[in-house]
């Protein structure tokens, strides 16, 4: 399938395109300049892949959790492209994308959520697919779910920001840490490809971010 994937939940702009089974990827650190750069970078990637935008058959995006603005840019771009081209969209969890490239079969994916918290989930590989042993949550590193068994690989910026707290919490379950890992569009694309092929893509109106952190303000009645 001719697909593209957009992942902008971190300070990186990560794009991937597949054409005829061949995947091309472009990832770079852009800070907060995703909006300014994403479509021109996509245009360049499509040209490199020899793909006309009208040949695209689906759009995948990193749906979050991550930077609120970042995941909304990915969702907005995915919506606009899919609406304009009349093709389906698929959102993929950034935590699952963080787990995907790991060589290990058991991964604790953990991203820094700021404000003393992390976005965290645990995945176990069964064949080609991942099963969420612990679904994505936002919580202090001291409270993350400790998956059963040993040999878990900890991946992501959560381990860079709160390494000590997470090591103390996860104890013997944790076998190794890759704190520099981040979710990439290539991983989003790999996860999305079989799902889009199976018809799991949705209408662009239903392509929504998954914020996980849902309490963002206090109602008047909740203020002291």
């Amino acid at each position: 399938m001719n697909l593209i994937a957009i992942e902008t939940s971190t300070e990186r702009l990560s794009l991937a395109a597949s054409a005829g089974g061949r995947v091309r990827e472009s990832t770079r650190v852009v800070g907060q300049r995703h909006a300014e750069l994403v479509l021109d970078a996509l245009d360049a990637l499509l040209a490199e892949a020899g793909l006309d935008r009208r040949d695209l058959e689906g759009v995948a995006f990193g749906a979050g959790p991550g930077s609120f603005t970042g995941v909304r840019i990915a969702a907005g771009v995915a919506q606009g492209l899919a609406f304009g081209l009349g093709i389906p969209v698929l959102g993929v969890s950034t935590l699952e994308a963080l787990a995907e490239p790991a060589g290990a079969p058991r991964v604790i994916a953990c991203l820094d959520a700021r404000m003393g918290e992390v976005y965290c989930a645990a995945y176990e590989r069964s064949g080609e697919a991942w099963t969420a042993v612990a679904e994505p949550v936002v919580c202090p590193p001291e409270d993350v779910a400790v998956p059963a068994g040993r040999g878990w690989l900890g991946r992501g910026s959560g381990f860079a920001a709160y390494g000590d707290a997470l090591r103390a919490r996860l104890g013997d379950a944790l076998a190794a840490i890759e704190a520099e890992a981040f979710p990439t569009a290539a991983a989003v694309l790999r996860l999305a490809t079989p799902r889009l092929a199976a018809g799991a893509g949705v209408d662009p109106a239903d392509a929504q971010p998954v914020y996980v952190r849902d309490k963002v303000a206090l109602k008047t009645s909740e203020r002291g």
Binding site: L42, R53, L81
Partner: peptide, 11 residues
Amino acid sequence: ASVAASLAYAR
């Protein structure tokens, strides 16, 4: 902006 620019790019 993101939906508008992407829709325009697609078309």
